[in-house]
Simulated assay, not measured.
Amino acid sequence: MIHCLIVDDEPIAHEILEEYVMRCGRIAILGHCRNAMEAIAMLETYSVDLLFLDIQMPLVSGLTFLKNLEHPPQVIFTTAYQEYALDGFELNAVDYLLKPYSYERFLKAISKIKTTKESGPVRSYFFIDNNRSTEKIYHDDIRYIEAVGDYMKIYLEDRYILQRCTLKALEEQLPAGDFVRVHKSYIVPVKKIIAIKKDTVYLSKTQTVPVSQSYREQLLRKFKV
């Protein structure tokens, strides 16, 4: 069972979430908070797995509240303001629910929650030749891949690896469904995409890759609600 707090200054938001939680059956509500101060008091009292957190609240915003938590639980933002999505995902939010949201969209967010009883996933990988040696590359370490002439740049967190091959050959080594081609010269991990705006994919607030028209439709299909 997932134990949650609902933190929102709108009574109707509490009522909707309470109804969805009761229908879901996986979650127990420990308390209702109208602002960040009440939430802090509840977090000091109870062991909380998940916050349903509004962003625009009196006194302290949800973003500021979360930034100042030393050991925050998992968070699903619930807000009427789409412009805060990038900030929310930068804080490692599980999901971002834009009001008004459906029960089906709520369930999609809940499916992303990790419980303490879940064992960690097995990390998939592949091997590439790198400077006369063979190196293991974990798929979840890849930020994105860029084709530059006859070489592929595999960008990791703090460096990139140059590999002589085609983008198609490299794409065939990646787990189906976990990576998506967004441009004739770019492949990105689906889980690292935090926003799609026109012809640009955001991997963070400052790191972007281009999206070409020919690949845009297949990219958007992966994120349809």
Rank of each mutant, 00 (worst) to 15 (best):
I193H: 02
Y96W: 11
Y144I: 05
V148K: 14
S119F: 06
K184N: 09
Y155Q: 04
I154E: 01
I137C: 05
F106Q: 01
T116D: 13
T206M: 06
A195S: 13
I110K: 05
Y125S: 15
Y103R: 08
L203W: 02
V122H: 10
D150E: 11
I193C: 06
F179D: 01
T134C: 08
Y125D: 07
D150I: 10
Y144F: 13
L156G: 07
E146Q: 15
R143K: 15
S102N: 08
F106V: 10
S133P: 03
L203Q: 07
E90T: 12
L203P: 04
R164V: 11
K136L: 09
I145Q: 00
M152R: 01
N130Y: 14
G120E: 12
G88V: 02
G149S: 11
T115C: 06
K153A: 04
Q163S: 11
A147N: 07
A195V: 05
K114S: 10
Q163M: 12
N131R: 15
N131D: 12
I145Y: 00
G88D: 00
P175S: 14
F106R: 01
R132W: 08
L203G: 03
I187N: 00
P121F: 10
I161Q: 13
C165L: 08
S204T: 14
E146K: 15
I193S: 04
P121D: 12
K136P: 04
G88T: 05
Q163W: 10
I128S: 06
S102T: 15
Y160E: 05
C165H: 12
K108D: 01
V180P: 00
Y84A: 04
R164S: 08
Y160T: 08
F127S: 03
E146T: 13
I113D: 02
I154A: 01
R105H: 09
Y103E: 12
L91Q: 06
G88Q: 01
I128R: 06
D129I: 07
K198Q: 14
S111D: 14
P121N: 13
T200W: 02
E146S: 11
P121A: 10
G177A: 12
K99R: 13
A109Y: 11
E157L: 15
S124Y: 03
L203Y: 06
P189Y: 08
Y101D: 03
I193Q: 02
H183W: 12
I161T: 08
E118S: 09
Y155F: 15
C165A: 14
Y103A: 06
V201A: 03
E172C: 08
L86C: 03
C165I: 05
L167F: 10
F127L: 12
K197G: 03
C165T: 13
